[in-house]
């Protein structure tokens, strides 16, 4: 019994220590003025993290918008309220689905790749040798990746929403025959730019920080063996998914739950 309590206590201390390491880590790497060379490194990571994730995010967004429209139509048509379809599609996408699903896809596509890449650099002693040459790997390797993640995910989320709303339009208006004017009109009447688009962006920014942080830290902190890399990659996806879904509830409660 006592042994169990002691073990629990030690696990707790380990957790706190890891959290502290992660905090110091992000503090040391994300702060500071980027040099000219830093911009080039950031650009390269923007390509890797952002541009290469664009295809999967846009395709998913299109299908989610289409499904949303189809499901929404079958429900709304029972109440004779199918002209509210645009409003339903836009609000669900902007408030919930776009930030959350884009963040989950981002964790799977870019987050795991970041962990594996940094982990491999650690396993092949590239980080150590950089330090021996006298370059801080936090600045050179970690910082550009962090900032690329922070900027990419909100942009991807915007793309997701736009494509999703268009997908809803395709199914609702072009296929099921909802009147085009009421699709856009109801949407415009009910979507508030700050309240809905803005809050969605805030959500996605929070998710971007959390997912990128988890991915890069897992890569930097892993055990440098092939087994360690595969474990850390899995951990990145699991932890970021849980963090995104949990934080989404908290943020939704604060933004739309009338708690304010």
């Amino acid at each position: 019994m006592i042994a169990r309590v002691m073990r629990l206590g030690r696990r707790g201390c380990d957790l706190l220590e890891a959290l502290g390491r992660a905090g110091i880590f992000v503090g040391q790497s994300a702060v500071g003025v980027p040099s000219r060379e830093g911009w080039a490194l950031w650009l390269r990571q923007m390509h890797f993290v952002g541009v290469l994730s664009l295809a999967i995010v846009l395709v998913s967004g299109l299908f989610i918008g289409m499904v949303l429209s189809l499901q929404g139509y079958t429900i709304l048509v029972d109440f004779g309220a199918e002209q509210a379809l645009g409003q339903m599609v836009a609000l669900s996408l902007l408030r919930e689905l776009a930030p959350v699903v884009a963040a989950l896809l981002f964790a799977g596509r870019a987050g795991s790749a970041l962990t594996a890449e940094i982990g491999l650099m650690k396993a092949t002693e590239q980080l150590t040798s950089m330090e021996m040459i006298g370059v801080d790997p936090l600045r050179r390797v970690v910082a550009p990746r962090l900032w690329a993640g922070f900027v990419s995910l909100p942009l991807l989320t915007i793309g997701f929403s736009v494509v999703g709303i268009y997908g809803g339009y395709l199914v609702g208006v072009e296929w099921l025959g909802v009147f085009e004017g009421s699709y856009w009109g109801n949407m415009q009447a009910s979507v508030a730019f700050i309240g809905d688009v803005g809050n969605g962006m805030v959500k996605s920014l929070v998710f971007a920080v959390v997912v990128t942080w988890i991915a890069v830290f897992q890569g930097y902190d892993l055990v440098p063996t092939s087994e360690g890399i595969s474990r850390a990659t899995t951990r990145t996806v699991v932890y970021s998914s849980l963090a995104v879904l949990g934080l989404d509830f908290v943020l939704t409660a604060v933004m739309f739950g009338g708690l304010s």
Binding site: L120, M121, T124, E125, Q126, T128, S129, M130, M132, I133, G134
Partner: peptide, 16 residues
């Protein structure tokens, strides 16, 4: 001080 040292790592550790 490290500028005055070179280190050759087991795996080479070239930047990939």
């Amino acid at each position: 001080l490290r500028r005055r040292m070179g280190m050759l790592f087991q795996s080479g550790a070239l930047f990939s």
